[in-house]
Amino acid sequence: MSGGTDVSTTATSITSLQLHALSLRRHVLRMAERVGQGYVGQGLGIADLLTVLYFREMKYDPHNLAWPDRDRFLLSIGHYSIGLYAALAEAGVITVDELDTYGADQSRLEMAGSEVTPGFEMTGGSLGHGLGQAVGMALGVRLDGRSSRIFNLLSDGELQEGSTWEAAMSAAHYRLDHLFAFIDCNDQQADGPPRQVLTIEPVHSKWEAFGWDTQRINGNDIHAIVNAIDAARKITGKPHAIVLDTLMGKGVRTFEERDKNHFIRVEPDEWRLAREQLEENAQLKTKRTA
């Protein structure tokens, strides 16, 4: 991808995106296996969205991250950084080798990512910061007359932070139709599922009530994500919320099936199995597509 090319207008096949998503998942397992733990469930669960954003939708230049006309991706949820590192490595912003430093002392790839890492537009992790900064950036690029768009990834648990709703109100007030919020509903936060911690449903109608163009889709279906973004792009005068129902650990059966945990600990002998399951799953999918 080079500066000035609007990737969103070039046709990229779903199959090619699925291969990127598989690659992202391999990167996630590689990082998590090195440290033996981590937010591997989130990284696997969000790989499909990050694939569509980084390999179809967003315009950016991996060799000129400060390009002022770039689209911007803001990761509110800093602990999902394992997923973003995978995407950034796949996109050539950082090297695949650097992924081996994930969570290590003196690494740029912190377990809760921050703006020290190239490709991170802000510091997330203290939840409830991303959408407000996205609003500020959306106002900024509009004031400069740029065509840039702002993409923000939030989580279901993050909706409990009141600041998110302050930002949601302001985005609708300023009619920021170049702002896209993706809400990852993986039904898990630190202390359990949101319905037990603090009910956040109905998520769809909350965003709608706040004045957003809202859709709710299967967040692990690349085709559905592509279609949702294409549909959102046609709606003007409103910011766009795309609520994604995702499966933590997607692509690795044992992670998909285990009791859901915010932070997964994996026994050393399980990693080989995880890698095998990912490849088996990918082959099945390829056969089905063929």
Partner: peptide, 23 residues
């Protein structure tokens, strides 16, 4: 000029976003 309303957390966040786009 941007009126943010009675939402001080968002006031600072929006300002930070504007700063990060060069304002």
């Amino acid at each position: 000029f941007f009126q943010i309303g009675m939402a001080e957390q968002n006031l600072i966040s929006v300002a930070a976003g504007l700063a990060r786009t060069g304002f």
